[in-house]
Amino acid sequence: MRFAALLLPWGLVAGLVAGLARAETDPADAARAAADQLEAATVALAQTDSARDRVKALTEVVHAYEAGLTALRAGLRRAAIRQAQLDRQLKAQEGEIARLLGALQSIGSGPPPVMLLHPHGPEGTARAGMILADVTPGLESEAARLRRDLEEVVILRDLQEGAAETLQNGLAGVQAARTELSKAIADRTDLPKRYDEDPVQTALLIASTETLEGFASALVDLQVEGMDEIDLPDATAFKGVLPLPVDSTVLRRAGEADAAGIRRPGLVVATRPNALVVAPLAATIRYRGPLLDYGNVMILEPQPGLLFVLAGMEKVFGAPGQVLPEGSPVGLMGGNDPEIGAILSQSSDGTGHDRTETLYIEVREGKSPVDPETWFRTNKDG
């Protein structure tokens, strides 16, 4: 795999990663496949300097690292669960194992002439031989099963002991890729721009609104002078099938109350620290920056009157008026990547405690919010 990554077109890297992450393998193979994903991402990162579209290449590398780290955590979790299961089985069978080893030892310890003799003479010896012939395959089968279990325990323990270095390299690689991506976005000059923002007008708009709903509604009415018309794909063709803009799990759906009893019309999703957030569709940036108590907010307009509001990021990319291609980075979540020890201690947890950041996603058609799940796939029934 490490060499195959050198030959793959950039557009296939993410597909390869996703395919491996979905592979049905045993715990050890799953963890090894994830380590290979991270190695492939490292190779791909080294190639981005010569990429024609460096932002796109780095975006795919960040996604590859994120997918590899996710798959490695899952593989280690499964390995830890499997090892604990084997340890319990072996402990519960200690008496049986001792008897098995004693029987095997007694069969193999005596010299052949003694083993073949029976105190009742030739007939007893023949019967004993037949019994021994019947029992021996079962003993050998049980011994082989025990040997496989013990070997698997050793493999799983070695795998987990060596995981720290793999995780360290993966976390360092994804951080380097994020840094390079931020630089590449700051340097890019190839995006079309529909208009230049009037910062005074934007500041007045923020000052005159007290809610996200009021700000978004005013933004729909805001007439920007000299806005160029740019043909974008029909957004309605993607309604209901859009992927979420970040790898995440749904915490609260539209209209569900939070701990304070507040209900909002959007989705709240949980992400890992520093996760990359991308544009789900080609869209114009209508607003980018801090807003009220939502942290950094990105408001995208895929078509007139349709707004995607993404709130709660640590960093946001781009400038109002720019037209982003589908899948372009719009920001990074906050938080700190966990320490290696913390990741390993959670490897047998599986409770999602590593998804510590939250992103708020709101969709507005005209001046009215709509359930984001009419646009985005969220495995609502899962």
Rank of each mutant, 00 (worst) to 15 (best):
Arg99Pro: 00
Gln93Pro: 05
Gly68Val: 01
Ala67Val: 05
Pro119Ala: 10
Leu76Asp: 07
Lys91Glu: 12
Leu101Arg: 07
Leu100Lys: 10
Leu90Val: 09
Gly68Pro: 06
Gly75Thr: 14
Ala44His: 08
Leu104Tyr: 04
Pro112Val: 15
Gly108Leu: 13
Gly102Trp: 10
Glu66Gln: 03
Gly108Cys: 04
Thr42His: 14
Arg88Ser: 13
Ala103Asn: 04
Ser109Ala: 15
Arg82Gln: 12
Thr42Lys: 04
Val55Gly: 04
Arg73His: 07
Pro112Met: 15
Ala84Tyr: 00
Ser106Pro: 01
Ala80Gln: 07
Ala51Asp: 00
Leu90His: 12
Leu100Trp: 05
Leu72Ser: 03
Gly75Val: 13
Ala64Tyr: 03
Gln83Phe: 12
Glu60Gly: 09
Thr48Pro: 06
Arg52Leu: 07
His118Tyr: 00
Thr48Phe: 13
Lys91Val: 05
Ala57Pro: 00
Pro111Arg: 06
Leu58Phe: 04
Ala103Tyr: 00
Arg73Ile: 03
Val43Gln: 11
Gln89Ala: 01
Leu58Pro: 04
Gly75His: 10
Gln89Cys: 00
Arg52Ala: 08
Ile97Asp: 05
Tyr65Gln: 02
Leu72Gly: 10
Pro113Val: 10
Pro113Lys: 08
Lys56Phe: 03
Ser106Trp: 09
Thr42Ala: 15
Asp49Met: 02
Val114Thr: 13
His120Phe: 07
Lys91Gln: 15
Ala71His: 03
Ala46Arg: 08
Glu60Arg: 14
Lys56Leu: 06
Leu100Ile: 05
Ser106Tyr: 12
Arg99His: 12
Ala71Val: 03
Leu58Ala: 00
Ser106Glu: 13
Gln105Asp: 14
Lys56Ala: 06
Met115Asp: 03
Leu45His: 10
Pro122His: 06
Leu100Thr: 02
Gly121Pro: 01
Leu100Gln: 10
Pro113Asp: 13
Pro111Asp: 03
His63Asn: 05
Arg77Pro: 00
Leu116Gln: 15
Leu76Asn: 06
Arg82Glu: 14
His120Thr: 05
Pro113Met: 11
Val43Glu: 08
Gln85Asn: 14
Leu104Trp: 04
Leu117Ile: 11
Asp49Ile: 00
Leu101Gly: 00
Ala84Gln: 08
Pro111Leu: 02
Gln83His: 10
Ala103Met: 02
Ala64Asp: 06
Ile97Met: 01
Gln47Met: 13
Gly75Gln: 08
Arg77Ile: 10
Gly75Ile: 09
Asp87Val: 04
Arg54Tyr: 02
Ala67Gln: 12
Gly95Asn: 03
Tyr65Cys: 07
